[in-house]
């Protein structure tokens, strides 16, 4: 079985600090959620993952965007670059990097849930027949030909981040909940992607798979589990 091969030291150098493992849950109404999947090269399998996680075959990068119109942190848009993986036998999305246009959201998401946020430009725009994501030189993406889908048909994989916690460097299981009232599937097109701008190893999107755009309520609950990133989940999982 394959495991992550990224340098833990290198990942740790970029990992945010979480002063506690007890963030206040957050709820955001009317949030737009874009999820776009791209296969990566086999050569990149595991390259962006710590040894405690396992890559999928084919390796998959998922761009996940939240556009939040308002709430406790004000309006913000967050764009995550995630690598699909397994923790033990559970499907997970490891957040390799993310960018948000809000300092307040960046601070809250980094310190509360371990998202490796940097502040930068990110815009999600919805037109009648397409959706576009502009994260500056780092990423440009278009979703074409929207086709209605039942919200229950979309799977949002549980998130894993890497952070310096009071227990040490840990993989943090974040379980956002999506109560969407409308979802459409779109055909994704990667207009540009600059791996160096993300400063994260193992991101190599090549073959577009599919994308969805939805709107509804996003909840980010309390944390329940963390695990040691250097060993498999069966050995390293701890309840919060």
């Amino acid at each position: 079985m394959l495991s992550g091969t990224a340098s833990l030291d290198a990942l740790a150098a970029r990992a945010p600090v979480m002063p506690s493992l007890e963030p206040e849950p957050a709820v955001f109404e009317d949030t737009e959620v874009l999820q776009a999947a791209f296969e990566m090269s086999y050569a990149s399998r595991g390259a962006g993952l710590p040894p405690g996680l396992h890559p999928t075959t084919p390796p998959l990068m998922v761009v996940l965007v939240w556009r939040v119109p308002g709430g406790q942190w004000g309006p913000f848009t967050l764009c995550q670059a995630r690598i699909s993986c397994r923790s033990g036998v559970r499907p997970r999305g490891f957040v390799a990097a993310c960018v948000t246009d809000s300092e307040q959201a960046a601070t809250a998401l980094s310190s509360g849930w371990g998202f490796p946020c940097r502040v930068g430009s990110v815009r999600l725009e919805r037109a009648y027949d397409c959706v576009s994501l502009d994260a500056g030189p780092a990423l440009g993406l278009t979703g074409l030909d929207p086709d209605p889908l039942h919200p229950g048909d979309v799977q949002y994989t549980v998130t894993t981040t890497l952070a310096h916690t009071p227990r040490g460097l840990r993989l943090v299981q974040v379980e956002p909940e999506y109560d969407l009232r409308r979802v459409e599937r779109v055909r994704p097109r990667m207009d540009h992607f600059a791996p160096d701008r993300w400063a994260a190893p193992g991101l190599d999107p090549r073959h577009p798979v599919t994308a969805t755009i939805g709107v509804g309520t996003l909840s980010i609950p309390r944390l329940r589990y963390v695990s040691r990133p250097e060993v498999p989940a069966f050995e390293g999982t701890e309840a919060v």
């Binding site: 559970r90 048909d153 799977q155 299981q173 309840a239």
Partner: peptide, 27 residues
Amino acid sequence: REAYPTRAYQSLGNLAPGGGSDRSSPG
């Protein structure tokens, strides 16, 4: 279903024993 949302695949199709929630402990 994990890569391609579609109503044609209502379950993960998992043959592994026991099933279980994706939100369960990874341990």
